[in-house]
Computed example of a mutant assay.
Amino acid sequence: MIPLQRISVSTRTQTLLTRWTKHVQDTGATTKAARAQWKKAKAPKAKVRTALESMARGAVRCMYCDDNRATDIDHFEPLDEAPLRAFVWLNHLLACSYCNSNVKRSQYPVDADGACLLVDPTAEDPADHLELLLKSGRYTAVSGSAKGEETIRVFALNRPDLVKGRMDAFSRACSNMRDWHQLCQEADPEADRVAQALLDSPFIDVVHAMTRLKPSVAAVVVGPRTVPALDAWRSAHGF
C-alpha cells in the first residue's frame, strides 16, 4: 500500500453526488436505501470512477493490494455502517474485486473512541502504520500500530499470492533498476521506457519501499550492485 493524492472533484460532480445523497435521505437513509440508490446511479458512479482512476498508480492498480486491476468502487466506510456516505467523494477508493468482495467486504474496525482502524492511503501515509519487508514479501505493522495490524488483517495483505508476488516483484525491480541505470549512463532513450514499465508494473509498493530504504541498510537489502541504481532512481523517480 502506498500513499495516493486524492484530487478534488469538479463542482458539477460534487453537485451530482450531493443530489444522490438527498435521494438516499428521502428514501429512508437506510443501508437498503443506499444500496438501491447506488445500484442505479450510473452517472455519479462514472464520474467517481474516472476521478479515482486518475489517482491510481500504474495500470489502475487496486489501492489496497497494489496487484490486481482495480475494478470496483469501494465504500471505505461501508454502507452497512454509514448509508449517508454512499455518495461522499472522500469515502470512495478503487479496489480489485478480491480485496473488495472477498476480504474487506463490510469490515470497518474501530477503536474504543470510534476511530477507524484501517489505513486510508488517500488520507495518510501507509508507512506510518505498515512496513514492507522486501526480502520476505510480507507486511508487518509498525510497532504499536493497531491500525497497521487491522489493515493487514482486513485486507489480507499477507495472503500467499501477494507475498510471492512481492518477492518476485522485488527481484525484477532490482534487475530493472540496474538496466535502467546502465541505459541512463549511456544516454539511451530506452531508459525512459524501462522506467515507465517499472512504474506501471504490479506491486508498485515494492518499488516505493525500496526508495525509502535507509542508506545504512540498502546494501544489505538490495545488494551492493543495485545500490548505485537505487540512488539514481531515488533522484529521478522518488515518490
Rank of each mutant, 00 (worst) to 15 (best):
F155G: 01
A146V: 13
R159Y: 11
D125L: 01
S136V: 13
P126Q: 08
L134G: 01
G137M: 10
G144F: 11
D125W: 00
L130G: 03
A127M: 14
T140V: 15
A127H: 05
N158M: 09
T151Y: 10
E131P: 00
L132Y: 09
P126W: 06
L130T: 02
V142T: 04
H129Q: 05
T151A: 06
S145N: 09
L157D: 09
L130S: 04
D128L: 14
A127Q: 13
T140F: 04
A127R: 15
A146I: 08
N158P: 00
N158L: 03
K135R: 15
L133T: 01
L133A: 06
G148F: 11
S145V: 02
E131R: 09
S143F: 03
K135T: 12
L133M: 09
S145R: 14
A156F: 04
D125P: 09
K135I: 09
T151P: 03
L157T: 02
V142D: 07
E131K: 06
F155S: 02
L132E: 02
R153H: 12
K135E: 13
L133S: 11
G137H: 11
L130R: 01
R138I: 00
A127N: 14
D125K: 04
R153P: 03
D128K: 12
F155R: 11
R138K: 15
G137T: 11
Y139S: 09
K147F: 04
P126T: 09
G144R: 10
D128S: 14
L157H: 11
H129F: 14
T140M: 08
E149W: 00
A127T: 10
A146L: 15
R153T: 00
L134S: 04
N158Y: 10
S136W: 03
A156M: 10
T140I: 13
V154E: 01
K147I: 15
A127K: 12
I152V: 03
G137F: 07
E149N: 07
L134C: 04
V142I: 14
A156K: 15
V154Y: 01
S145L: 04
R153C: 05
T151H: 07
D128W: 00
E150G: 04
L132H: 03
N158E: 06
E131V: 02
A156P: 03
F155L: 14
V142S: 07
P126C: 04
V142N: 11
E150P: 08
S143R: 10
A141D: 02
T140N: 06
E131H: 06
D125T: 08
F155H: 14
K147A: 07
S136T: 15
T151D: 10
R138M: 15
E131I: 03
G144Q: 12
P160L: 07
P160H: 12
L134I: 02
V154M: 04
G144K: 08
E150S: 13
G144S: 11
I152A: 10
S145G: 02
P160N: 10
E149H: 00
T151G: 09
R153K: 15
G148P: 05
R138S: 12
P126A: 11
V142H: 01
G137E: 02
A156S: 15
E150Y: 10
L157F: 11
K135C: 02
Y139K: 09
F155Y: 15
R159I: 08
E149R: 08
H129D: 12
H129S: 14
I152G: 10
L133I: 07
R159S: 08
E149I: 01
E150C: 08
E150R: 13
E149P: 02
L134W: 07
